[in-house]
Structures are given as C-alpha cells and as structure tokens.
Amino acid sequence: MASGLAGQMLAILAALALAPILSGWVAQCRAWLQSRSAPPLWQPWLVLHKLFLREVVLAQGASPLFSAVPFLVFACMVTACAIIPTLSTDLPLSVVADAVALVGVLALARVLLSLAAMDIGTAFGSLGARRDMLVGFLAEPALLMVLFTAALGAHSTALASMVDVLAHRELAILPSLAFAGVAFTMVSVAENGRIPVDNPTTHLELTMIHEALILEYSGPHLALIEWAASLKLFAYSCIGIALFFPWGLAANDSPLALLFALPILVAKLALGGAVLAVAESVSAKMRIFRVPEYLAIAFVLAVIGVLVHILLGS
C-alpha cells in the first residue's frame, strides 16, 4: 500500500511537471513549422513562475466564486490526471473513479470556468461561455461513447481495467477502436481548444472560445488556469495513449516499474505532441457554426465504433 501511495504521488507529480512541458513542446514544434526559432521547452514553466510572482487584480463586481474558480478548476484537472492510468494500471486512486466520473470531473471544470466568466458580466466572458458550453454539450456525449466502446471490451467502466484488458490482448487495435480513435482525436482537439476548433494563440476577441473565458484573470489565478489547461491537454493525451497505444504501461505499482514506464510515456507524448503541432500548422480554423457538425461527426463515429464492436462480437 505504501508503495502504491508513492507510485500515485509519482504519477501526479509527473503530470504536474510534464503538462506544461508538453504545451511547450507543441509550441516549439509549431514555431519550427513556421520557420521560426522556438522558445525553450520549459517556457510555460517560466510563464507560470512569472505569473505566480505577480499580483492579482480583481475586476469590479467579482464575487468570491471568481477567485475560487481557478483553484477548483486546477483541483479538477489534478484529479483527472490522478485517475487516468498515465504510468501504471495499478494505482490506488484509479479504482476511486471510473470513466464516467472522469467525464464528469472534466465537465465540472468547464462549467465552473464558464460561470466565473459570466460572473464578471463582460460581453466577451458571456460570449466565450456560450461558445464553450456549446462545444462541451456536444463533445461530452461523444467522449462518453468513445469510452463506452473501450469499456465494452473490458466489461468494466473503470479506466484501469479497460486499459489493462486492451494492453494484454494479442492485437490491440480492434476495428471498433479505429472508429473510437478517430472520434476521440476529434473530441480532444475540440475540448482542448486547438485548431481547427479554437485558436489558442489568437489575439482577436471576437473569435475566441477558451481565451475569452480567462480575459479577466491575472497573476496567480491566471497561472492556475493556464496550468489547468495544460493539465487538460496532458490528461487527454494520456487517455488517448492509454486506450489506443497502451504498450509499455507498468502493470504493478512499484516505483521502479513506474520509473521505467516514464520514459516510454514521455516518448509517446513527444510523438503525439509533434503530430498535433503538424495537424495544427496545416489547417485553418473552421467557422463556429461548423463546430456542431464537426462534433456530430465525432459522435456518430463513436456510435459506429460501438456498433462494430457488437457486430464483430469482440
């Protein structure tokens, strides 16, 4: 049990430390693809460090909710990272929450952030909240369907056992998972506010989704939200890796096994980040009214994944 706790701590710490690095890596790849020299890999850490040193400015009329939300959102994302089998399938917290709870935790963070944006009462806060909820309402069912497709194979909605089953069969990519994989990629892009759904680097208020929600935050509050955003990207990448490329996960909870699993995870994340950067660099942002269509496609593909699973009976 003690080693289990140590392993769990290691997994959480790894997530906290690696998440900003993953964002930095994607930014680096994007810069290179634009013929620019890139900022250092740990640039997001430097930004977080700076933000923690700055003071908080509260907008007029901000309620206590506004100040509480960064901490709550951050806590949600840490929880999400803790229950995802990032390094091992055998961690104490993994049994606490299943896939449905994970979707709930992610949805909670979204609702809190939208509430905080509307709390200030600026036009852009409400605009961003409205758009973000639109994305969320459509993305969450699709995400659930993807997780169900995987759960059908494992006869369990616990993430750890799903991944365990997937990792230890002779051919890991099932036909149903091909559909689920495409659907999951589409949902992840939308949920993390990446191109083509949202542009994380835009300076245009009128086109923003996620950025519009956090315009009023400053200093440590902003740092927590930025950190939470990179944790979210990290969480989604890890779910994707665990479901579709589970090889190399530690099957027990000894810290040594986890330490071996870490470099494999880093390598897979690096590859995934590079692919994300390429995909973002070659595509333009879609119109906002195409987003529902886009997410409807993801949902239908996830449902077909379930159907294919039932048809092939495997």
Partner: peptide, 21 residues
Amino acid sequence: NPFYNMEGEGIHFVASPRHAD
C-alpha cells in the same frame, strides 16, 4: 515575424491588460 521572432524569446502580445506586464 520570423526574423525578430519576439515569441522565441518569451515575449508575447496578450489580449487582455490583466495578463500584461
């Protein structure tokens, strides 16, 4: 632009005065 590439040195333009130094 890629020649001066301010972002490569960690300098960003931001969308809100709350984020600015």
